[in-house]
Amino acid sequence: METFKIIMMATLAVVMIISAIMAVLSKEMPLAILASGAISLLASIFFLILASPDVAMTEAAIGAGLTTFLFFIILRKTEQNSHEDKK
């Protein structure tokens, strides 16, 4: 059980790190934002396992939810701005 947990956590960590690298490197902004949201989401799983359910909840709601949402809004607005400029 414990070993399984560790393997799962390790896998999760690797995924998160890959997502993080993707988020940083990706040329596509939406993809990057999604990757970052994924990190937060996976982090909340981590928190849960690290016996911090309250932190997990907050991270899921704020980090994965609100932040991602906000990023998308701003992304759209800035794209609109740049778009107007091209016209």
Partner: peptide, 25 residues
Amino acid sequence: TQKNLLKIILSFSIFDTGLNILIVA
């Protein structure tokens, strides 16, 4: 390293998440 403002902000939020995980850990 990133030049895009949004990317920089994004990177910082990843940094924050990392910090939080570190503390909890």
